[in-house]
């Protein structure tokens, strides 16, 4: 059973007078395995937030089928197993963090336990601010509190919309640690983030949404792979003309590139380079970063 399964999902927002509206999702198919971290990326208006809202039963699809944790998103038993952090969480300004978390616990059908709430605030780095009013919180502190609310009760599925937005670099490390702990616990992580580096660090699989469709989806390493290109770096003093002569192409920063479909072909190139007197100090696959993959997928989808 998948943690999330969407089949031919479409959503078109219509106005009050039922005028034809803009389609936000156009036949989305997606499956996320339980216990994994999945990142959804895409440009603004691609339909990411709409999809998340459909997962939570906040928005109803126009057509298609969606299953969350094996049930319907509007099933209360299913929702009780989901933790959610919205992109712009609106918090009650006059409350203090423990009051907010106690309220969330009650909404989740749990009895608020003071010790558990204190532990949670400690975990997200807000223990020192527990006595302060939320009104005085920075954006990062609000995100941390929202994250605490999402993980409260140990949900099976965490749906996080921009979880590290507004959090400083050190804070992001802490958030990643919490997300990793949740993954180790067995929770499924569904992450929507504009910060591609965050997605790369946390998620094993990534989906690229463009114009309401899933443009690409798969393991991060597969998406970033560029066929059989390799990057080589040699110790200073190598013969550039000789390396060019055996088919290596010069790259920026004194590095060299080559195409090799098999391990034998790669080693043959390396043997020839070494025979010319060049000493290999670094060898890596030529992989694109997620930003390039996204730009490419969006261009193709358009």
């Amino acid at each position: 059973m998948d943690a999330i399964r969407a089949e031919a999902l479409t959503k078109t927002y219509r106005g009050l007078l039922r005028k034809a509206g803009e389609p936000a999702l156009c036949g989305l198919d997606l499956a996320v395995a339980p216990g994994t971290a999945f990142g959804l990326i895409g440009p603004n208006g691609a339909g990411k937030t709409t999809f998340i809202k459909i997962l939570l039963g906040v928005v109803r699809p126009t057509s298609g089928k969606v299953e969350v944790l094996g049930g319907h998103p509007e099933d209360l038993a299913v929702r009780a197993r989901i933790g959610y952090l919205p992109e712009r969480l609106h918090l009650p300004e006059a409350w203090r963090p423990p009051e907010f978390l106690a309220s969330v616990a009650r909404l989740k059908g749990k009895r608020p336990v003071r010790a558990e709430i204190s532990r949670l605030l400690e975990r997200v780095g807000l223990a020192q601010a527990a006595g302060r009013k939320i009104a005085g919180f920075s954006k990062g502190m609000r995100q941390r509190l929202g994250l605490a609310a999402a993980v409260l009760g140990g949900p099976d599925l965490l749906v996080l919309d921009e979880p590290t937005d507004g959090i400083d670099p050190l804070g992001r490390v802490e958030v990643r640690k919490i997300l990793t702990e949740e993954l180790s616990r067995g929770a499924t992580l569904f992450l929507n983030s504009h910060l591609l580096a965050e997605t790369e660090r946390v998620c094993e699989r990534v989906g690229i949404l463009a114009s309401g469709r899933l443009a690409r989806e798969g393991r991060l390493v597969d998406l970033c792979r560029t066929g059989e290109r390799w990057i080589l770096e040699f110790a200073p003093g190598h013969d550039a003309a000789a390396l060019a002569g055996i088919g290596l192409s010069p790259l920026a920063g004194g590095r060299w590139g080559c195409e090799a479909e098999t391990a034998q072909a790669l080693n043959l190139v390396l043997d020839r380079a070494r025979a010319s007197g060049a000493l290999l100090v670094r060898l890596e696959r030529d992989e694109r970063d997620l930003e390039e993959v996204l730009a490419d997928a969006v261009r193709v989808a358009a």
């Binding site: 809202k53 939570l56 039963g57 906040v58 209360l76 038993a77 929702r79 009780a80 989901i82 959610y84 919205p86 992109e87 712009r88 969480l89 609106h90 969330v104 909404l107 989740k108 059908g109 929202g146 609310a149 749906v159």
Partner: peptide, 15 residues
């Protein structure tokens, strides 16, 4: 009903 609050509330097991 403000954005960021209503979807957070509706994501809980609440009718």
């Amino acid at each position: 009903l403000s954005p960021g609050r209503i979807e957070h509330l509706l994501a809980h097991p609440v009718r």
